[in-house]
């Protein structure tokens, strides 16, 4: 089942990329997807059941909307800091503890952090995420944990766990 899921994902991506239904294109896509599935099927999608649960897709959509909004804010925030003559920056690296357990959820959390206002993930070690923050507004762990990852963590739990 794991292999079939991976095959479907690769094949659909190929169809979107080529965007034709010509017979040669289909055959090539089929063969390439098959080879990729046989080579990498072992490593990925150990949690394939997630992909057949419609509720998770709903939460993924909610997450996507919030993420895009945050991303827009992030851009105006950074653009303001860059263009302002005084350059209001106060950078630092802070440690944040996350409650997520699965690897894919942590990956998405780290990527979301990188795209949101003034923060970049430096490293993820076990449960701790080290974040470079362009304007450290508070040094109290409970305050900045909520500020940096609070919004995403709950939704990602619903999507991936």
């Amino acid at each position: 089942m794991k292999y079939i899921t991976l095959f479907l994902m690769t094949f659909i991506l190929w169809l979107l990329f080529t965007f034709t239904l010509g017979i040669y294109s289909l055959i090539i896509g089929f063969v390439v997807s098959l080879v990729i599935t046989l080579l990498f099927g072992n490593r990925y999608l150990s949690d394939w059941k997630l992909y057949y649960n419609p509720v998770r897709y709903f939460w993924a959509l909610v997450y996507l909307v919030i993420f895009i909004w945050e991303c827009l804010i992030a851009n105006f925030d950074v653009a303001y800091r860059v263009l302002s003559p005084k350059m209001p920056i106060k950078p630092g690296i802070v440690k944040v503890k996350s409650n997520l357990s699965s690897d894919i959820a942590k990956t998405f959390l780290a990527n979301s952090i990188t795209m949101t206002p003034g923060t970049i993930t430096v490293d993820v070690i076990d449960d701790n995420i080290y974040i470079h923050w362009i304007y450290v507004s508070s040094q109290d762990p409970s305050v900045y944990t909520k500020k940096l990852i609070g919004r995403f963590e709950k939704l990602l739990k619903k999507v991936f766990e």
Binding site: I89, K90, P91, G92, I93, V94, K95, V122, D123, Y130, V136, Q139
Partner: peptide, 9 residues
């Protein structure tokens, strides 16, 4: 940079 306030890494 010198402006850095905290480095927990």
């Amino acid at each position: 940079t010198d402006k850095t306030v905290v480095d927990e890494y």
